[in-house]
Design a protein around this nucleic acid. Structure first.
Lengths: 171, 171
DNA sequence: TCCTCCATGTAACATGTTACATGATTTC
DNA sequence: GAAATCATGTAACATGTTACATGGAGGA
């Protein structure tokens, strides 16, 4: 059901069409939090509307349908976020590969770690720049918490990869 | 297909039964890397064997069936790990909730952040203790890389949650 | 006019979840 | 002898993926 709440959460920020939501998933959620395809989003949006958690607020050009969250939707969303689920679902292909590093020989492991060190540094810098830029726009601080977590996460992965490479060399 | 490679990876470390693999998922992978149910593992193990990537090596009491990875399995596993997939799948219910924090009022956000600060500290300490204990057993350093990443990850989340709480209070 | 992007959807298939079914072995 | 744990599986259902289908609007 997480997809449902991800959509509800995005709609809680501002009204949006399925197309908009697919873009937000792609830009904001896919890399860290939740992956969803466009073909999943449209049917779920319609179910959300059928269940009274979202409502169609505008029809635009090219058949564009803009939805907003309803009061019932906000209540349901809040309930879900505040519910302390101690067995949340985690699936991360990247991390899985890092867990399986010990099945490679050390030259191959080095290759994976080097790729990792590079890509996490790049992600870190991209997020830092985005945060810098957004911090001038007068948003409430909470709006940048997620980006800050992302930036710190990629920095951690970067530092870890360098540490692991060093340990591998001293063997 | 990630489940398939997760199983192959675990079998690359040592031969195991479906029951063993379910336990390894639960203890090692579920929280950070990949989630899988016991009811998914058994059929996939059988498919792995049918495809020649794993092979039945022992039948024990209570119908226990121990599998080992084959050479073809190792090749396939290595191919997958080394393949730099730049759009890996990420699904993390926990992180998703953190991304939706800005849809809550500040008192509710504080509540979520406090829970988060606490649970990440606990996880961090648990992993540090496990690493400490394992570091005396003379394993190759690479065997502890994943645990180290996990420990650093939870420390990062912990520090971030404290930082976010502070920022929330200064508003 | 052509190309790109906007925009919504469906169908077939693969993967993942929940609930159930069954029984052996070990430990207290 | 009762309870916990080991052990493998299936069936019905929910969720997610890939490929396809369709067409409007805006800019070069």
């Amino acid at each position: 059901m997480s997809l449902r709440y991800a959509l509800l959460g995005l709609l809680a920020e501002e009204p949006a069409s399925g197309y908009d939501l697919a873009g937000k998933f792609e830009r904001n959620l896919r890399r860290y939090a939740w992956h969803a395809q466009q073909s999943q989003i449209y049917p779920e949006l319609n179910r959300l509307a059928a269940d009274g958690l979202a409502t169609l607020v505008e029809q635009g050009p090219r058949g564009r349908r803009t939805y907003a969250i309803t009061d019932a939707g906000r209540i349901e969303l809040r309930r879900w976020i505040l519910d302390p689920n101690d067995e949340p679902i985690v699936r991360n292909e990247h991390t899985l590969k890092l867990f399986l590093l010990s099945t490679l020989d050390s030259q191959e492991a080095r290759q994976v770690l080097q790729q990792q060190a590079e890509s996490s540094l790049k992600e870190h810098e991209r997020l830092r720049a985005a945060i810098d830029e957004a911090s001038h726009t007068g948003q409430p601080p909470v709006a940048l918490f997620a980006a800050e977590l992302g930036a710190r996460y990629f920095q951690t992965v970067h530092e870890w990869a360098l540490w692991a490479l060093e340990r591998l060399d001293n063997t």
